[in-house]
Amino acid sequence: MITAGIDMGSRSVKVVLLEELNVDGAPALKYGVKKVHIMMPGDLDQDVAANKAYDEVLAAAGLTRDDVKVVFATGAGRKQVAFAAEGITEMTAGAKGAVFMFPQARTVVDVGAEEGRGMKTDGEGRAIDFAGNEKCAAGAGSFAEAMSRALQMTLKEFGDASLKSDKSIPMNAQCTVFAESEVVSLIHSATPKNDIAKAVLDAVASRVCAMVRRVGIEGEVVLIGGMVHNAGFVQSLKGAMGVDTISLPDMPEYISALGCALIAAERQHR
């Protein structure tokens, strides 16, 4: 049986196809995963983009729409995916996907471009509780992205630069728009770029961490979402949360789409 999970984010569509493999004697279901990720072309409506991404992943897997038993959607734009049988929240999908990748995970931190949140999950990947920063760019990847632009760096370079600093400069501005001016004045006062990068990533990490603490930090901590690729942010988050290790999936952007496809598969067995 094949199911599909579509994560309709604000800027990109992520699709995961999940094949349930019936292996003899296996204690639990096994799955094979195929994924595709397209940036949302600016001139496309969300439903058109969803169809395009879905067709691409099917073509890559050598499948047709008829081969897929059921499609579930998640993400901020999940209601725009007209061909999905059901929409599930990002929290439900993220927790499910994270626990599938890391069975010991109980605290899931999801930091994407537009939101940062923490979830507490049980061993089945059911989200028990969550708290987040939504609809404010300061609590998410957008904040770091805007500041990296001010330093004329890519977000990746920005993260790497931050790792080279051991300073802790507090940022006064809490708003992305005001922080841009603060970063510009730090540049003018000849503050090393590495230190500015660390100050910015520490600031985002501390905001995200405050939200995660509302759900409580316990068990293995997993970070999902696009900010996983930012080594500097991961380091800052460890510091803010006071943990030695944070588990990082190798396909962090797809975890919610994966969780979505897993839930779709499970529902077929009910």
């Binding site: 509780d129 969550f130 708290a131 405050a210 939200m211 603490r213 509302r214 759900v215 409580g216």
Partner: peptide, 8 residues
């Protein structure tokens, strides 16, 4: 205030 306001 987050520590005084657990989400639960």
């Amino acid at each position: 205030c987050a520590d005084c306001k657990p989400s639960g």
